[in-house]
């Protein structure tokens, strides 16, 4: 096995530029994720917000961050992924029902 010997290492320039641009998008979303994390920890560490405000904001920040992961890092936004996305929304829906059910009506 002469590993890469017969593999053409040159990916065409157009593709390379495209990949590079995509990477830039990824770096931006990473920065946004870090910012979201910092805000979330900041809110709790500083105690600036009361419990009633803090919890919805924290959940919102988490959702935003996860959206970045799904759409950019995991390429859910790409064309041809519509069926995948549809099913993932289904999963999120089932998950939301589960969490709501267990969180809200267990102790009633």
């Amino acid at each position: 096995m002469t590993d890469n010997a017969n593999t053409n290492n040159v990916v065409d320039e157009y593709q390379k530029t495209k990949n590079k641009e995509e990477l830039k998008g990824h770096l931006i979303s990473f920065a946004m994720m870090i910012v979201a994390t910092l805000i979330a920890f900041g809110i709790v560490a500083s105690g600036v917000m009361g419990k009633i405000y803090a919890i919805p904001v924290l959940v919102l920040l988490a959702v935003v961050q996860v959206a970045f992961q799904f759409y950019y890092f995991m390429h859910l936004k790409e064309k041809g992924n519509s069926m995948t996305a549809l099913l993932i929304y289904g999963g999120i829906w089932a998950a939301a029902l589960t969490v709501t059910g267990l969180g809200a009506i267990t102790w009633w």
Partner: peptide, 12 residues
């Protein structure tokens, strides 16, 4: 603990 958690998970 809470036994109802099982019922929820089982029926979900």
């Amino acid at each position: 603990g809470n036994a109802i958690i099982w019922q929820h998970l089982f029926w979900i």
